[in-house]
Simulated assay, not measured.
Amino acid sequence: MTQQIQLSETQTTILAAACSRDDRLVFPVTAKLKGGAVGNVLKSLLKKGLIEEIASKDDATVWRVGEDGTPLTLRATATADAALGIETADDAQLEEAATPAAPRRQREGSKQEALIAMLKRPEGTSIAEITAEFGWQPHTVRGAIAGALKKKLGLEVTSEKIEGRGRIYKIQD
């Protein structure tokens, strides 16, 4: 005898929407929730095994970025079908939808590529050198390093203070 999984109205709404999609993705979430409520509901569904993390094919559906830098999204599982009383989806269809996304590539000649090249130099680079090169404001440089390079691309950017030159940022090859 299987135990019935208790779902709130919000959990049911989110799961039903995901199960009705061909790709079974949870995103976009259609339920109207405020603040961190969506995250809390999704964590609860993950814990119950009703949704699972898979590699994301689309930036619009990213739930979080994995430790290896792979963007992850959420997909309804066969257990979700059972919890909602839906006939089980074909496992082959689920596997087809889960094919991993290609790793992020750098566009040729982009400012991001030039910034990475500056950071990979043996002597590294400073915020002042980057602002002079690109005409950016210092806060934009710090944002690009923290957001685009560290979070999205998963690069390890280190910094150290060097006398006469200030704080120097580097990416080790």
Results as ranks from 00 to 15, higher is better:
106 Q>S: 10
119 L>N: 15
24 R>Y: 03
55 A>N: 12
24 R>P: 07
7 L>G: 03
111 K>A: 03
49 G>K: 03
43 K>D: 08
11 Q>T: 15
130 I>H: 12
65 V>C: 02
83 A>H: 00
36 G>S: 09
131 T>R: 05
113 E>L: 08
7 L>Q: 09
131 T>D: 10
131 T>Q: 04
127 I>H: 00
30 T>Q: 09
110 S>I: 01
130 I>F: 09
109 G>Y: 10
71 P>T: 13
19 C>R: 15
52 E>I: 03
102 A>G: 10
121 R>G: 06
134 F>N: 09
94 L>P: 08
40 N>M: 14
22 D>S: 12
66 G>I: 02
110 S>A: 03
71 P>S: 05
124 G>N: 03
7 L>D: 09
70 T>C: 15
62 V>S: 10
76 A>V: 04
8 S>L: 10
73 T>C: 11
14 I>L: 00
132 A>F: 00
32 K>C: 06
101 A>M: 02
65 V>F: 08
24 R>A: 11
89 A>V: 14
116 I>K: 07
106 Q>R: 15
55 A>G: 05
96 E>Q: 13
109 G>E: 15
99 T>D: 05
133 E>L: 05
45 L>S: 07
128 A>C: 01
96 E>G: 08
53 E>P: 12
125 T>I: 13
86 I>G: 03
39 G>C: 07
117 A>N: 11
93 Q>F: 00
93 Q>K: 07
